[in-house]
């Protein structure tokens, strides 16, 4: 069990800043996540999910990972795709009573059939990320926070060979660039299905936007 985040951050504020970071960037970022510091019952520092913004790959991305998944993508067979859909349907059932479902309500006939759409690798990686946390400097986000130095990993080979399960997992799901930028309150992680070179001004912007007093 986690204690309250330190300090408690407004999720609307996080969402606005994540969205601004992704939508305002010249590069095509697939998602942004803010990993927020907290401490567990034993006093260990934990980076846990603060909030995230999912944009998805570029619309003109021709790679299979952009398209709805088929058997050639990530060796995903039909059963695995059905499992992803089932998990999303179950999660939808879990959260919709509490948070409503305005998208379905506004569009007649939309219903829950839209939950049956193919779940792409990038979408799945983002959803799985919500269940993750990093204790005492583990993982790429934890390393960035503990060293207070941004980590910018470009290319499938570097992600695959990076000594971190999250980087390897990202690569397996089609991420080509993973960036973790530390702030005093946590870590901003950006991921893209493109190879994006290091960008000093983006790192500064992320650090500034996610430094809370």
């Amino acid at each position: 069990p986690l204690t309250a985040p330190l300090p408690s951050l407004n999720q609307d504020t996080l969402q606005q800043r994540l969205q601004a970071l992704v939508e305002g960037a010249a590069e095509s970022w697939t998602y942004a996540i803010f990993w927020q510091t907290s401490s567990d019952a034993e006093g260990s520092m934990v980076l846990g999910w603060g909030d995230g913004y999912y944009k998805g790959p570029r619309d003109d991305d021709p790679r299979p990972s952009k398209r709805p998944l088929d058997a050639n993508s990530h060796n995903l067979d039909g059963a695995d795709q059905e499992l992803r859909k089932k998990v999303l349907r179950d999660l939808h059932a879990l959260v919709s009573p509490e948070f409503g479902d305005s998208a379905a309500a506004e569009i007649p006939g939309a219903g829950d059939a839209t939950m049956d759409g193919e779940v792409t690798d990038a979408e799945w990686f983002y959803v799985v990320s919500m269940m993750q946390s990093f204790v005492n400097g583990s993982g790429v986000p934890g390393q960035a926070f503990f060293t207070a130095v941004p980590i910018w990993i470009i290319g499938a080979e570097r992600l695959q060979s990076y000594n971190c399960d999250r980087a390897r997992q990202a690569q397996q799901f089609g991420i080509q660039t993973m960036v973790c930028i530390p702030s005093p309150n946590g870590v901003v992680e950006l991921g893209s299905m493109d190879q994006i070179p290091q960008n000093w001004s983006l790192m500064q912007q992320a650090k500034t936007s996610f430094t809370f007093t």
């Binding site: 969402q15 948070f99 479902d101 998208a103 759409g117």
Partner: peptide, 26 residues
Amino acid sequence: VPRVPQARKASLARFLEKRKERIITK
């Protein structure tokens, strides 16, 4: 179904709603 901490439910709801919009508008 994985356990979803309360703080993450809002993120999940937002993601699922936007995903539904993307599918509908395709």
